[in-house]
Design a protein around this nucleic acid. Structure first.
Length: 221
DNA sequence: ACCCAGGTGGCCC
DNA sequence: GGGCCACATGGG
């Protein structure tokens, strides 16, 4: 399994190159993006983040000053904006209550403890929590999203309806290396955007051809 | 006029 | 504990 996962990674990397994820520079911006991108096209998230940036709200203290009703209009392009404004505030309340508003202190937690804590925040589920841990915290936690699922299931590495933790467990076959997990997940999203929707016929997927050519046939094909 | 996008929580049974 | 459903914008 380890060999197979690494082989997929190498072929993805060779084809698509480094992805430079997460888009967004500061830790707080990454966290905001992770919440805003829930079930939403990233282009829409960028518009919302642009609104927040222009209003100088990409800062925990400044954002905390706004009640959800005042925050929502900035978030609007990301969709489900009332919900997401509340979720941003839920995170900020959590950050303030448990870490005195300090992201530095938050990320001093051990990954497993922080994950549990984040999952207690209403509006932060497993994917959002893991995105925060990996991309904002640079912790070796693999992120499972719709693309991860779609690609792995089409390659018969998981069942299409496999539970989150089960999919994530697959990647424990890899060394716990945050930059590797970062790049790997970003590549899965990139290849998913590029091929999995426009080319639902997996026989045409260049990744599959790469793997077969190199003697790593995918099971079930 | 659909359908989808880097989910999550709240119901209902 | 599973099976729906609301949330909602912008692009194809």
């Amino acid at each position: 399994m380890r060999r197979r996962l690494l082989s997929i990674y190498r072929h993805l990397y060779r084809r698509l190159g480094p992805q430079g994820w997460w888009p967004g520079r500061t830790r707080f911006e990454i966290i905001v993006g992770a919440i805003l991108t829930q079930n939403t096209n990233w282009a829409n998230v960028e518009k919302a983040i642009g609104n927040l940036r222009r209003a100088r709200l990409l800062d925990p203290v400044r954002m905390s000053a706004l009640p959800a009703r005042r925050l929502a209009p900035f978030v609007r392009p990301a969709g489900t904006f009332a919900v997401k404004a509340r979720r941003l505030r839920n995170f900020l309340a959590f950050l303030h209550a448990r870490y005195g508003g300090s992201l530095r202190r938050l990320f001093r937690e051990a990954p497993a403890r922080l994950r549990t804590a984040l999952l207690d925040v209403s509006g932060i589920g497993p994917e959002t929590a893991d995105s925060i841990l990996l991309y904002a915290g640079r912790m070796p936690v693999f992120v499972v999203d719709a693309y991860t699922r779609r690609i792995l299931s089409r390659h018969r590495l998981i069942a299409p309806d496999a539970p989150y933790d089960e999919v994530q467990a697959l990647f424990t076959h890899l060394p716990p290396d945050a930059p590797l997990y970062n790049e790997y997940h970003a590549l899965l999203v990139a290849v998913g955007k590029k091929y999995c929707r426009t080319t639902p016929r997996c026989e045409d997927c260049p990744l599959r051809r790469d793997l077969e050519r190199h003697g790593i046939p995918l099971p079930g094909w």
